[in-house]
Amino acid sequence: MNPLLRVHELGVRFHMRRSEVVAVDGVSFEARKGETVGIVGESGSGKTTLTGAVLGRVPISCGQVVFRGEDVTHATPRRRRELTAELQPVYQDPFSSLNPARTIGQTLEEPLLVHTRLPAGRRRTRVEAALEQVGLSGRDLDRLPREFSGGQRQRIAIARALVAEPSLIVLDEAVSALDLSVQAQILNLLLRLQADLGLTYLFISHDLDVIRHVSHTTVVMRRGQVVEAGPTAEIVTCPASEYTRRLLDSTLVPDPELQAARRGRVI
């Protein structure tokens, strides 16, 4: 079966005054429908730039992005806008990714205004349905973001992505700012939505533990390049690269004795 998304030898360069920054360098991976590709790496490793390129928000210097068999590397702006219905992002910060001055209903309606010609009543039904899918209720439509907790706001951000009925959601550090118990709730929600709706996720995180929990395949990035990629279970149990091993060793375990023993291993 063809993958839903194929990224092939992708390169992104930024031209600065005198120098050139290679933010993404020859990155390839595939995302199959209904599965999750985890992209893990430290800050500056090019994760955000990579997702920007996939979403068409960052100009691609070389390589290809193929979505549903269509080469969208240099899609026209009009085609791009159509594609945004299929490719939806969810960002890290549930506090600033929602416009504080607009009600939840207004925010969630925006994708529908752009991508559809639904009448107001039908838009409202869709928005309410999306809110219910993420465990909120239609009663929340007229409230402002500040009236919600961090976890609820992230649910709203996920609902906003769902409204357009996308096939692929790019989650850029989507659970990184959340409390443990809330993180668990959001991860449960994402896994459930994936099972119910057959969603494909591109899951960006600096947290290898989160990636291990949600990803079928994992891409480890460093300085714009892929360090290693493969089935998640293999990568977290027997990493091929020294760098991945170091990442694994740096993760903390919630067990004082084990953690004390591990501490010495990190260089």
Partner: peptide
């Protein structure tokens, strides 16, 4: 600001973003 970035991610046109999200 991330909320402007997300508005762009939602495929909103620039005029809309300028008026609704930036100008205020």
């Amino acid at each position: 600001q991330v909320f402007v970035v997300s508005a762009e991610g939602a495929g909103l046109n620039q005029w809309h973003i300028l008026r609704r999200h930036v100008l205020p």
